[in-house]
Design a protein around this nucleic acid. Sequence first.
DNA 1: AAGTTTTGCAACCGCTTATAG
DNA 2: GCTATAAGCGGTTGCAAAACT
Length: 326
Amino acid sequence: MGGHSCCYKQKLRKGLWSPEEDEKLVKHITEYGHGCWSTVPKQAGLQRCGKSCRLRWINYLRPDLKRGTFSQQEEDLIIELHAVLGNRWSKIAAHLPGRTDNEIKNQWNSCIKKKLRQRGIDPNTHKAIAEVEAGGGNAAKNGGIPATPTLESTTSKGSSSPAKDFALDQLLATHESASSSMGYFQLPQLSFAPDLGSSLPITDTNPELFPASSSSMATMPKPSWVGEDYCSIVLQSACSFDNGVFPWPPELGPDKEEQIPLGNKNEDIKWSSEYLHSAFPASSAVQAQSQPLHGDSKRGSQFGISGFSTWHQNQQLQDIFGKDFF
DNA sequence: AAGTTTTGCAACCGCTTATAG
DNA sequence: GCTATAAGCGGTTGCAAAACT
């Protein structure tokens, strides 16, 4: 790209945004949409570059942002997704409605990594640190590159085999379908169709490889009686496939979450009048619901089971596809 | 209470990817 | 196919607040 054409035209403000700037940007976008970001600052009367405006909107001003402390479930999900996707924060964020890639990245770097290490799990490889070191410390030798690369890192670029692509598709497809019916979290369901192919030796019917909760979830068709509660059920399973803890607090079941459509200009306009008079009505409502759950979890150490489950899950993936697959 | 260190988050920077002409 | 521009992404930095000494 060779520099930012929007940045050098004139002396532009940098650093923290003032409330006045925020208001200008919000007002402009809610009235006209962002259109071409490079024209936004001029039209909105801001001494900022378009890139800065875009970032401010995406990471802070968007009305559908959840904000607030990450819940234990969210952290668990981030770990699960990171094990599959690696540092592809935008991909991870796509599975956490109301969270931005930047927010997730910060959470990972400042909090989750630390917790994983405290539990003896290497955040790069998602394997036990002892195992990583015993294996020759490839991660360190390779300058931080995971000794056991993630699924995504090996499939998304260059020479990916059809089997890898298929497996990732399966994984992500199950996320998508689960979440579209659930409307909230998208979870890795470690399931692979029995007809996945002869190249993959193990099906989801092996109870040793797939603890009851995850495997049964995978094969179980959504019953007719399930409504939004289905999400809660699935989440309980997915967040607890080691021993069935982490039930959803009843007051914070996914069916209680308000769903806010994304990226819809009409919706932008719809919320704008309300938004402009009271900051973040929708997101704050969600946040208010989320906060009690988040509570002390951020600083607490309730990490054991979920952290280990991630490692355990990664082991399962390796078992399923073989070491060479990764 | 004051100084220092640590932590968490917002924002920037530079690179890559997508798209239009 | 090439080039310019815009958008998207991930790594990194800077700073304010919190924690610690």
